[in-house]
Amino acid sequence: MLLDVIAISFLIAFLRGGRIKDIPKFYRLYLLAISIILQVCAGIWHEIAGIFISLSYLFILLFFFFNKQHEDIRIFLLGWFLNALAIWSNKGRMPIDLEQAKKLPYDLEPVINGTNFKHSVLTEATNLPFLTDIIYMPVIIPRVISIGDLFIMLGAFLLIQRLMNKPISLIHLREGKNYAAKG
């Protein structure tokens, strides 16, 4: 999914002298499990995939909400929330802009004929089009992203910095203090 972002984040954390010490603790992991199961269900029952995907987003938002004591999770929460708005308002599928998607090396046929249960084609009728997948990102793995994805990438970067024991605090940055968070 975000393999390149994750790899770069690890590289940066490594260059900053970070090493994995211990895996951070998450609360209510079952919410994450439910969310994944719902995604799988969506893959099986294509007709009602929209409902499964919408619910899956709800559970992952809940999962982040209960883990929000860390800043990176709060950024995830915001990113996923923006994406959820786009998905919920478009019947459980993320609309994607074909004009941008054409630049990708993938087969777009399933999206166009509606067999892709995760994406749909962005049209005039799409709600909140500015929150859907509309921006072509050429590097490193080419993809079409949404504005919410931008926050998710930042969240992933921050989470990995924390994982590698070199956390960065955005709140400290904002207050003009040293960027390093306690921990």
Binding site: F130, I134, I147, L150, F151, L154, L173, R174, G176
Partner: peptide, 16 residues
């Protein structure tokens, strides 16, 4: 909109 989101993300954390 995308560009300004990026700018906001950067400048929200660059105080003076």
């Amino acid at each position: 909109l995308f560009t300004y989101t990026l700018l906001t993300l950067i400048f929200s954390f660059a105080p003076m």
